[in-house]
């Protein structure tokens, strides 16, 4: 039997091109508007600031890209990032050597990633539910071990330097972020693993019959997402100079928004590293500009919500690909 998908009002070529570049256009317009209205916006200092601000977000969003490539959702990233930051700083203030403390933070991510993977691929719980629950657990453990208080005092300078220091004008955190991006670009675009992640995302049945280990790659997407989130959480603690219990929360919304904005470009409907990096930049510029304009914090939430709806509408107009 042949199944057919009815394209929802396939727009004409010119309109499609407009859709495709609409987010890029929006970013350019936004930059122009901010430059004209905010004096400090286009200064070297502010640009460095934006780059620093989006480094952690980019790492989370690129991690989410692995999960979404395999068509699984990870709603635990924000809270896993928060917990990893708390775990690493708690270890540090208690005298655990730096490499080991970082490893402990990353293990938190890995543990949550593995639990997510097992719940989704072995037990068979939809990732939307499994990762939402895992996020709640991470949040609870976070406040339990931190007592809801910030963790500071005795954090080694090497550690905080990762988040705050620069090499020349280049923030160290940006270099670390670029390493994650470069690695992910190669993995997702040029490796067997990446192709298989996209395969299980594009057509599970076909991937299975082609000999791809479907559960392994679905699980891998979720595991990588959690490890990336925990890396970002540790770097965020380094940047803040303390472990903040509520610090990671915004990475869920911002990270997903970045990935969805990225999906409008390159391969519409497909999460790509390049698209996600663009999406993170978009979110970073938006956050920064609205901040500098002195608008209330809630304006950012409203703006990002609207943006995410717009981006997803654009994607669904462009393609018949199922987003999730």
């Amino acid at each position: 039997m042949t199944t057919t998908t009815v394209a929802r009002g396939q727009p004409k070529t010119r309109v499609r091109a407009l859709y495709r570049y609409s987010t890029l256009l929006a970013l350019l317009i936004m930059i122009v508007v901010f430059s004209l209205t905010i004096e400090r916006f286009l200064t070297a200092r502010n640009i460095v600031n934006i780059v620093q601000q989006i480094s952690m977000l980019t790492i989370v969003a690129v991690g989410l890209t692995y999960a979404l490539a395999a068509r699984e959702l990870d709603l635990s990233v924000g809270n896993v990032a928060g917990l990893a930051g708390i775990a690493a700083t708690l270890a540090l203030v208690n005298g655990v050597p730096l490499p080991l403390a970082v490893l402990m933070g990353l293990s938190v991510g890995l543990a949550f990633g593995i639990v997510n993977a097992v719940m989704v691929t072995v037990v068979g719980i939809p990732s939307l539910i499994a990762t939402l629950a895992a996020g709640s657990i991470a949040y609870g453990v976070n406040f339990w071990i931190s007592g809801g208080r910030a963790i500071y005092g005795g954090l080694p300078a090497t550690f905080t330097n990762w988040g705050q220091g620069t090499w020349g004008i280049v923030p160290i955190v940006a270099v670390i972020m670029l390493a994650f991006v470069a690695l992910s670009y190669v993995v997702l675009n040029h490796s067997v693993t990446g192709r298989y992640l996209y395969a299980v995302g594009a057509n599970v049945a076909a991937a299975r019959l082609a000999g791809v280990k479907v559960r392994l790659y679905k699980g891998l997407g979720l595991a990588i997402s959690a490890v990336f989130a925990s890396s970002a959480g540790i770097l965020l603690a380094a940047r803040l100079g303390s472990g903040q219990p509520g610090a990671g929360e915004r990475y869920l919304m911002d990270g997903l928004a970045a990935v969805f904005i990225g999906m409008t470009m390159f391969r519409p409907g497909v999460a790509t590293v390049a698209g996600t990096v663009f999406g993170a930049l978009f979110i970073g510029v938006l956050n920064n500009g609205l901040n500098l304009l002195g608008l209330d914090f809630f304006v950012q939430n409203i703006a990002k919500g609207v943006l995410m709806l717009l981006a997803v509408s654009i994607v669904s107009r462009q393609t018949t690909v199922r987003l999730l």
Binding site: T2, R195, A199, A205
Partner: peptide, 23 residues
């Protein structure tokens, strides 16, 4: 039912050919 069980609709011909023995 090739479009359901064998092929990746949004992929290229090349990607569809290589996926079985990508290694």
């Amino acid at each position: 039912s090739r479009m359901v069980k064998a092929l990746f609709a949004e992929w290229t011909v090349k990607e569809n050919l290589s996926v079985g023995h990508l290694g």
